[in-house]
Each structure stands twice: as structure tokens, then as C-alpha cells.
Amino acid sequence: MNEDPNADEDARLDEIVKRGPSGAIVLAGISTALVIGMWFVFYFAVFLPRGVIR
């Protein structure tokens, strides 16, 4: 009866850690895509209509 009461919790935690930070990577990818998309919108909507700088 010397079972560790946290053994199940430790096993679940190990399984979560093995899966990796997939949610954080997805969030970073979406954020990066949004920033790049906003840059293109700004470029095509603001800079190109102004024409060539002389």
C-alpha cells in the first residue's frame, strides 16, 4: 500500500508533455499569418496607390 497518489497525475502529465506544444505553434502560425496579411493589405491599399516616389 505504498502507492504514490500522484502516479496517475504524473503519467498524464508525461503524456501531455510528450505531445509537445502544438497549440502554441498553431497560435504562433496564425498570428504570423495575420501580421503578414495585414502588411500586404497595407502595402497594396496605401503604398501602391500613391505611385512611384520621385
Rank of each mutant, 00 (worst) to 15 (best):
V26Y: 09
T32F: 03
I25A: 12
Y43M: 11
E9R: 09
S31I: 03
F42A: 10
R54M: 13
I30N: 03
E9C: 11
N2Y: 12
F40E: 07
A11T: 00
A33T: 06
F44W: 14
M38G: 13
K18Q: 09
T32K: 10
P49E: 06
A33Y: 10
G37D: 05
S31C: 12
N2Q: 15
R50W: 04
D8Y: 08
G51C: 02
I25H: 00
S31H: 12
N2L: 11
A28P: 01
G29V: 09
P49F: 06
R12W: 05
E3N: 07
D14H: 01
V17I: 13
L27E: 12
T32R: 03
V26E: 02
V26H: 00
D8V: 07
G37P: 08
A33V: 13
R50E: 02
V35L: 14
P49S: 03
M38P: 01
G23V: 02
A11V: 08
T32H: 11
R54Q: 15
A28W: 08
F47D: 01
A33M: 14
W39V: 09
V52D: 11
Y43D: 09
G29H: 08
M1Q: 10
N2T: 12
V41R: 08
V41Q: 05
P21G: 07
I30Q: 06
P5I: 06
I36R: 09
P5L: 06
A24K: 15
G20Y: 06
D14A: 14
I36V: 14
T32G: 11
M38A: 15
V46H: 10
N6M: 12
F42S: 00
F47T: 03
I36S: 04
V35M: 00
P21D: 08
N6S: 15
L27K: 12
F47L: 12
F44I: 13
I53R: 13
I30T: 10
G29F: 01
F47M: 07
P21R: 01
F44M: 06
L34H: 01
D4Q: 00
I53F: 14
F42L: 12
V41H: 02
A11K: 05
W39C: 04
V41M: 08
A28G: 15
L27A: 15
G29S: 08
G23W: 02
G23D: 08
E3G: 06
G37L: 04
T32P: 04
E9A: 15
S22W: 09
T32S: 12
D4T: 05
V26F: 04
V26K: 02
